[in-house]
Simulated assay, not measured.
Amino acid sequence: MQPYPVPAQSVEISEEIKKSRFITLLQPTPGVEAAKAFIQQVKSQHPSARHHCWAFVAGAPSDSQQLGFSDDGEPAGTAGKPILGQLMGSGIGEITAVVVRYYGGIKLGTGGLVRAYGNGVQLALAQLSVIERVPQTEFLLRCDYAQISMVETLLQQVGGSIVQSEYGAAVDLRLALPAYEAAEIANRLFNLSRGSLVLQPV
């Protein structure tokens, strides 16, 4: 899995369209549970709003298993899908958007709703700063005490880390490595150790 951008912070913007107030909120949400918890939180903060429409990309942007959206009572396809379309178009992962609508008495029509919900998210995304998420994969490694410093040096170079270590006759390590470079790192380790160090997938 390649690295991908995720939100560095939350964003909230508000606009009025034909007397209806639209509040767009973006939130970092790593995972579907976090996304659903944020949606519930917004609903409890705006109990008198007519609609709480939302969409999320709860994992990597390429992971279609972690997508969700809802029109929350608006005509089908006028809210959740435009919100999700903006999120997917941004290429950002681990993000949820909720658009709260306080109805002002004037109907916007389907085209007007699609624009209102989509544009609100687009404006909020323009204000969002992101950081890079590097997906990690875990491996087991057994090495001699004399090889520890070589392993630690390599981990520093590639952005990996030691998750767990057990010191016995040899040293058993659980390592977290950038997933997209794992095969290359395994080769480097094998070559550096003249074939004595082999990563085992967890």
Rank of each mutant, 00 (worst) to 15 (best):
I83E: 02
K81R: 15
G109T: 03
M88E: 11
M88G: 00
M88N: 09
G85R: 12
G109P: 10
G85M: 01
L84S: 03
V99I: 09
T96R: 11
V98R: 07
G105Y: 03
S90C: 00
G91T: 13
V99W: 12
V114K: 12
G85C: 00
V98G: 08
Y103G: 01
Y103C: 06
L84N: 04
G111D: 10
E74N: 05
K107R: 15
G91V: 03
I95S: 09
V100G: 04
K107Y: 08
G111T: 03
G111P: 01
G85Y: 01
L108Y: 08
E74F: 01
M88P: 01
G112Q: 10
Q86F: 11
P82V: 02
Q86W: 12
P82Q: 13
G93K: 06
I95P: 05
A79G: 05
K81C: 00
K107G: 09
Y103M: 06
V100C: 09
V98N: 08
V114C: 02
P75T: 04
L87C: 14
G89Q: 13
T96M: 11
G80A: 02
M88H: 02
G109V: 00
M88V: 03
Q86N: 11
V100Y: 04
G105N: 09
M88Y: 00
I106A: 14
V98H: 12
T96I: 08
I92W: 01
L113D: 08
L84T: 05
Y102W: 11
G91R: 06
A79V: 14
G89K: 11
A76R: 14
T96E: 12
K81I: 07
G111S: 10
K81P: 00
G89S: 07
V99Y: 03
A97Q: 12
I83F: 06
M88K: 15
L87E: 14
L108V: 04
E74R: 04
G111Y: 03
I106V: 15
Q86Y: 10
I83Y: 12
S90R: 00
A97R: 01
I92C: 09
V98W: 14
P82H: 09
P75D: 02
K107V: 14
G111R: 06
T96H: 09
Q86C: 05
L87D: 10
E74G: 07
V114Q: 10
P75N: 01
G77A: 03
L113E: 13
I95H: 15
R101P: 02
V98C: 15
G109S: 07
G93D: 07
G93N: 04
G77Q: 05
Q86L: 11
G85E: 14
L108M: 10
G91S: 07
T78S: 13
L108A: 12
L87T: 11
T78F: 06
A97L: 03
G112N: 12
Y103W: 15
G111E: 07
G91C: 01
P75V: 05
L108N: 14
G93A: 07
V100D: 07
T110W: 05
K107A: 15
G93R: 02
T78M: 02
S90F: 00
G105C: 11
T78H: 06
S90H: 00
A79R: 05
G104E: 12
G80H: 02
G80M: 04
P75I: 04
M88S: 14
G85N: 15
V100K: 09
L113K: 00
V100L: 09
Q86P: 08
V100P: 00
T78E: 04
P82A: 10
E74H: 04
P75C: 01
L87M: 11
V100R: 07
K81G: 00
